[in-house]
Amino acid sequence: MRKLLKHGFKESWLEVVILNACVIVSSIVLFIGIATAQMFLLTIGTAVFIGALASAGVIILMSISRSFHKKLFTNEGYLTLTTPVSLDKLLLSKIIVNMIWIFATVFSFAISIFIMYAGIIILAGPAASFIFGVLVELIAQNPLSFILGIITFLASVLFFLTALLFIIVLFNTGHKKRFKILKGILLYYAFGIVFTMISYAVAYFLLFYPITRTVVTIVIMLGLSVAFYFLSRFVIMRKLELE
């Protein structure tokens, strides 16, 4: 597993590191622009930051799709799938690598917001730091909600990755491979709609029990993630036919 992770990171680090570097650097530029009230730096920093924000989703999605699709279902699959490691280790290593890249990207955006906010504090004085106080107070008052929020985020990332894996697997196995991107997008939206309906149903029945509602949603997401993983594994074992 260690070697699979090493090669997984080695394959995909470049675009993610460039993206995160753009986010951090642009936030530092914005910090200086805000703290010194320089319009030129503000303009450049904002443009790069918004650009990074807008492209983050696309870059991450492309990186994930490539790691699942290219390594398993194109000619490169001839090497990947004949490497002496189990299919579980192969799939799990890809999920772990992509999860870490998503966390790293979210973390770098969070850090960048703090950096920019520090610029506002310098410009407006210590009084502007009250938001930090409010935030800390909210967490202190309700630590369980905060922890559940983090777990919900982790579960939703896992759900997203396993759903994407399943869709990619589904449209790369068997003989009928036409319009696979279009079919993949449609299926992803279909999964999204079904999951939203389930979430609304949970919210409706557990309207006055927010903690239970969150826990149930987490359990559903984790359950679906496990289901998507095993379905992907099953389809690969039964239907994989590399061209």
Partner: peptide, 10 residues
Amino acid sequence: IKLFVNLLMQ
């Protein structure tokens, strides 16, 4: 050959 190398598992 694909069966021998486990590229076809079924």
